[in-house]
C-alpha cells in the first residue's frame, strides 16, 4: 500500500518540520499572512521569531494560504482555532470576509489582531498599520514628485499601478494619495491600473501606461510585485531616465533596479519590525497588558490606538542608491 506509506511519510515529515509544537510553550501566536512565499512576509516572520525569542515563552506559528484568497485564509485560521492558539495576528486578503471566522475565534477566547492589511473592527481587537495610512499616501506622492523632478521637470503626469482591485490597504493608500495630490501642483494623476500582483499582468499594464501616456514621468506602485514588474518594463521599453518607478518595495528585490536606474527611490517600512510589533501586541493582548488606548510593542515603543483600535507603527523609510544595498542583505 504505497499510498498509505506515502501519507505516513508525509505526516511524519510534516511533524518534523513543525517540531516546535512539541515544546509546549505558554503562549502561541498564529501569524497569518496573505500568502506564503512573499518576501515581505518572510521578513515579517523573522521579526516575529525575534520577538518570540525576546519574550521566551512564546511560540510563533507562521502560516498562510497558497494564493491570496480569503477562503484560503479562513481555512488556515480554522486550523489555528482548532489548535487552540492564544492569539491570531493576520494580514487580511479581504477585510470583510474574514470577520465571521475571526469572530468565532474571539468567541473561543482567542485574541485577534490584524496587521499590515486590516480587518473590519468587528473581527479584531487591534489593527496595526505599518504606518499611518495618510503618511503612506503622502510618502508615495512625495516620492512620485521626487521622481518627476529627477526627470528634469517640475510638473508631469503620474500613474498608479496597484495590486488586485480588492486589496484593502492598496485602496486606502490610493485614496490617501488622491487626497494629498492637490498639494503638489505639478502632478497630474492620469490613470490607475491593476496588475493583480501577477508579474506578467503588472508588466503589461506598465507597458500600456507608458504607451497611452507618452508624457508619463512616474509610475507609483505601492505593491512589491507591481513595482518590480514596472521597473522591468521601464527598462525594457528603454525609458530609463524618462520614466521613474517608485512606490513600496523591498530593498532585496529592488536593488537591481535601483542600479539600473529605473527606480530612483522607493519606500517601505521595516517588515521585520512589523512582524516583531505584531507579535508583541498579540502577546500583550493575551497577557491582558493592553488598554483601550495603547499597547506595548517591545523595542518599538507603544502603539497609540484610535477609536477603531487602529495604530500606526512607524514612518516608512526611504531607500535609494545610497543605502539600498546595505538593507538588501537584511530584507
Amino acid at each position: 500500500m504505497a499510498l498509505k506509506k506515502l501519507l505516513a511519510t508525509a505526516i511524519v515529515t510534516a511533524t518534523m518540520t513543525t517540531a516546535g509544537i512539541a515544546n509546549a510553550a505558554d503562549t502561541r501566536v498564529g501569524l497569518v499572512v496573505k500568502a506564503l512565499g512573499i518576501g515581505f512576509f518572510e521578513a515579517a516572520a523573522e521579526g516575529a521569531q525575534e520577538a518570540a525569542k525576546e519574550l521566551g515563552d512564546v511560540e510563533v506559528i507562521y502560516t498562510g494560504p497558497t494564493t491570496t484568497t480569503a477562503e484560503g485564509q479562513i481555512e488556515v485560521i480554522n486550523s489555528l482555532i482548532a489548535q487552540k492558539v492564544d492569539a491570531i495576528a493576520v494580514s487580511a486578503n479581504d477585510q470583510d470576509a474574514l470577520v465571521p471566522i475571526l469572530k468565532k475565534a474571539q468567541q473561543r477566547g482567542i485574541k485577534v489582531m490584524s496587521w499590515d492589511s486590516g480587518v473590519a473592527p468587528d473581527g479584531r481587537q487591534v489593527h496595526l498599520n505599518p504606518s499611518s495610512n495618510a503618511l503612506i499616501g503622502e510618502m508615495n506622492i512625495k516620492l512620485a514628485s521626487d521622481a518627476v523632478k529627477a526627470t528634469g521637470s517640475d510638473s508631469g503626469e503620474i500613474a498608479i499601478l496597484s495590486a488586485t482591485p480588492t486589496a484593502t490597504n492598496q485602496n486606502i493608500w490610493i485614496e490617501e494619495m488622491k487626497k494629498v495630490l492637490p498639494n503638489y501642483a505639478g502632478l497630474t494623476l492620469v490613470d490607475t491600473v491593476y496588475g493583480d500582483d501577477l508579474a506578467d499582468k503588472s508588466y503589461r499594464e506598465a507597458v500600456a501606461l507608458m504607451k497611452n501616456h507618452p508624457n508619463l514621468k512616474a509610475i507609483v506602485a505601492p505593491t512589491t510585485v507591481g513595482i518590480l514588474a514596472a521597473a522591468q518594463a521601464v527598462q525594457d521599453e528603454g525609458k530609463i531616465g524618462q520614466v521613474y518607478v517608485t512606490g513600496l518595495g523591498l530593498p532585496s528585490e529592488l536593488a537591481g533596479h535601483v542600479d539600473s536606474g529605473a527606480i530612483k527611490s522607493f519606500a517601505i517600512w521595516n517588515p521585520i519590525d512589523l512582524g516583531y510589533s505584531a507579535t508583541m501586541i498579540s502577546y500583550n493582548l493575551v497577557k491582558g497588558n493592553a488598554s483601550d488606548s495603547e499597547v506595548g510593542m517591545g523595542r518599538m515603543g507603544t502603539a497609540k490606538l484610535d477609536a477603531d483600535g487602529s495604530a500606526a507603527m512607524a514612518e516608512p523609510f526611504i531607500y535609494d542608491a545610497s543605502n539600498v544595498h546595505k538593507f538588501a542583505e537584511i530584507f
Binding site: 512565499g37 512573499i38 518576501g39 518572510e42 518590480l228 532585496s252 528585490e253 536593488a255 537591481g256 533596479h257
Partner: peptide, 10 residues
Amino acid sequence: SNGEWVNSHE
C-alpha cells in the same frame, strides 16, 4: 525555493 523569490539582481 522555500517560498522565497529569486530577484533580478541575483
